[in-house]
Write a protein that binds this DNA or RNA. Structure first.
Length: 230
DNA sequence: TGCCAGGCCGGGT
DNA sequence: ACCCGGCATGGC
């Protein structure tokens, strides 16, 4: 069910449920301090490397880049693409991801003088559009960059977000990215710290309790499953 | 041992 | 405007 999970005597908005989910998860997990990275640039690299990939593998790949001392815009600019691919091999899809990293680096140097900070100077949504034009950066990656590297109030929607909302009957199966993002951004304060924590909470919940085949009974959200059905 | 992980692209309908 | 195959490693 989309928009309004109503019943005759309850008139909660979707925002009410999103807020309630946040409260429960925040109480359960506490402050998560995302994104796990030392610098904004590292966030961006991680965002590209983690596409459809377990974070553990990404962490290994990032370690390799650090050991090679090329985890900087200059370093990734300098390195041969085949060398780069070999280094990030543990993160999977390493040929495409090496290309994607290079594409971002080219953009960064061409448009922002190689400075990550310059990336976030202009209008957020204009920056988002530009990021989306880079090959290998889609909506989730762009938003992760804006939120976690740039501290911009943009909500990140990922597979876990979709799955959790779907299982709680808050969205329909085919809801689009922007549709889901709007639910959060129109019904909750547009606050970067809040979006940061909320997305982190959803990912943690997904990893632990909401796998594809596992509907876990001990999920902290279980107490909320009695949503009014359409 | 298959199935899955913090997607995205390009080609086809 | 969707739909799908391809891309790949490592953990359970």
């Amino acid at each position: 069910m989309t928009g309004n999970p109503r019943s005759n005597d309850e008139h909660h908005t979707i925002g009410f449920y999103l807020q309630q989910i946040y409260n429960v998860l925040n109480g359960y997990f506490g402050e998560l301090h995302w994104w796990p990275a030392d610098t904004p640039f590292e966030v961006i690299v991680g965002a590209i490397l983690t596409q459809n990939t377990a974070w553990r593998n990404v962490a290994t790949a990032i370690e390799k880049l650090k050991e090679a001392e090329i985890l900087t815009p200059e370093g990734l600019s300098r390195v041969e693409i085949d060398t780069l691919a070999a280094l990030i091999r543990p993160s999977g899809y390493y040929h495409v991801k090496a290309r994607r990293l290079k594409a971002f680096i080219r953009y960064l140097h061409a448009e922002h003088n190689g400075s990550v900070e310059n990336l976030f100077h202009g209008d957020i949504w204009q920056t988002r559009e530009k990021l989306l034009h880079i090959n290998g950066i889609g909506e989730e990656t762009a938003d992760s960059i804006l939120l976690y590297a740039g501290g911009q109030p943009v909500f990140v929607v990922d597979a876990y977000t979709r799955r959790i909302l779907e299982r709680h009957n808050l969205i329909k199966e085919k809801a689009g990215y922007g549709e889901i993002q709007s639910l959060f951004m129109t019904s909750m304060p547009q606050n970067a710290a809040l979006y940061n924590q909320y997305h982190a909470l959803l990912v943690n919940t997904g990893k632990m309790f909401c796998m594809k085949k596992k509907f876990c009974g001990v999920c902290p959200l279980s107490e909320l499953t009695a949503y009014p059905l359409p």
